[in-house]
Amino acid sequence: MHYKIKITGGFVGFARTYEGETDISLTQLKALQRISKSNLRDKKVFRDGQQYNLTLTDNEQVYTLEFTEQEIPQDLMNLISSLKGG
């Protein structure tokens, strides 16, 4: 599955984009869309938090996930980390 992550905002400020292929399964993707959110979600005053825009393309099907720093599920952060590091 093709992925494209766009991370905007944060202390760094400018947008960063990561693109490539991942072996995430459709089941895993669906699970990511459902799983619980970050432990930061109750924080109301947030400064330098990032915005995450993740696009996954599987043949013709496009899945888009958008999160703020407070909302993003930890499992999805782990996925993004592995994609950035890979």
Binding site: G10, R16, K43, K44, Q50, E69
Partner: peptide, 8 residues
């Protein structure tokens, strides 16, 4: 993780 933040 390429960031630092203040969460309140």
């Amino acid at each position: 993780y390429n960031n630092a933040f203040w969460d309140g």
